[in-house]
């Protein structure tokens, strides 16, 4: 810890709002910018993504009681929204929305963490450092999506009784009580793919790596990739949907379905959603 180090690297400690060309292939940093697209028209609300996330990221199953108390640890959740009651079927018209950390480019959680336990990576991920976290929960207080989950209890001691601990993913830390956690876009897979690619002197190919939710989705509603690569599927999807990462208000026509949640708060999320197409007559 030295003042010189702090002053020399001050720009890295600051969270700026994203600017065009931030992830430029010609620059030293910014070869990757991981982004996601969720097609709500395809999503069936089957919860496979949630289950896969539990398995991949060592999420504890908290039980019914704690679930009801809002102490659940699902990094990706399927939100259900209902139409207003029409006719004799009260459960008509469910909409599903998978909600995970939006990996905001100007993340509200990052600026408020007192110990800088959550910060931005060069890949455009919003990282969470469990060892640094002291559990002030300010990040969760300031997160508009409320996708940060706090370890209210010492889950490792209860969530995996004797043989079950063998199913834990060795690549992912098991979090203790008093630590904040959230969706990482399966950063352990990303870094594994990146280091494999680096040994072969290339960049990660499109589709080479997927987070557990995207991999498990039976209908393929979740797409994932490197948006810096203009040839990648995800970059094309964002482009087709006329959603720009660097804008806080999209100028798009009515023929496309893409949008980002709570854009007016200017967090610049990295997850694009595509509206569900509804037939009003049905």
């Amino acid at each position: 810890m030295s003042i010189t180090n702090l002053l020399n690297n001050w720009s890295f400690y600051r969270n700026k709002r994203p600017y065009r060309g931030q992830y430029d292939l010609n620059r030293q940093y910014g070869e990757y910018k991981w982004a996601m697209a969720v097609d709500l028209d395809i999503c069936t609300g089957c919860n496979a993504c949630t289950t896969a996330c539990y398995a991949e990221n060592n999420l504890p199953v908290v039980g019914k009681h704690r679930f009801e108390h809002g102490q659940v640890m699902h990094w990706i959740r399927i939100e259900r929204y209902w139409d207003e009651k029409m006719g004799e079927f009260p459960e008509q018209g469910t909409s599903f929305l998978p909600m995970m950390c939006q990996q905001c480019e100007a993340a509200p959680c990052e600026t408020v963490c007192p110990v800088a336990a959550t910060s931005h990576t060069n890949d455009g991920l919003n990282s969470q450092n469990y060892h640094r976290c002291i559990g002030s929960r300010y990040c969760s207080a300031n997160c508009p999506f409320k996708v940060r989950y706090f370890n209210w209890w010492n889950y490792p001691s209860t969530a995996w009784p004797a043989p079950l601990e063998d199913q834990l993913n060795p690549d992912v830390t098991v979090r203790t009580k008093g630590v904040m956690e959230k969706c990482t876009f399966c950063v352990q897979r990303l870094s594994e793919a990146k280091s494999r690619a680096r040994t072969e002197y290339r960049l990660v190919r499109d589709g080479e790596v997927l987070p557990a939710c995207a991999q498990a989705c039976p209908t393929g509603a979740i797409s994932f990739g490197n948006i810096v690569d203009p040839e990648s599927k995800i970059a094309k999807m964002w482009k087709n949907q006329q959603v720009d990462l660097y804008k806080d208000m999209q100028e798009k026509d009515n023929t496309v379905r893409g949008y980002r949640i709570l854009e007016d708060l200017r967090p610049f999320p990295s997850v694009m959603y595509m509206e569900r197409v509804r037939d009003a007559e049905a």
Binding site: M1, S2, N15, T111, V112, C113, A116, Y138
Partner: peptide, 21 residues
């Protein structure tokens, strides 16, 4: 809790001066 304090340490880590906490 002492992570909040800017104390000398071998990891060269500082608290986040942007944070109101």
């Amino acid at each position: 809790f002492y992570y909040v304090v800017a104390y000398p340490n071998e990891r060269w880590t500082w608290p986040n001066f942007q944070s109101p906490l």
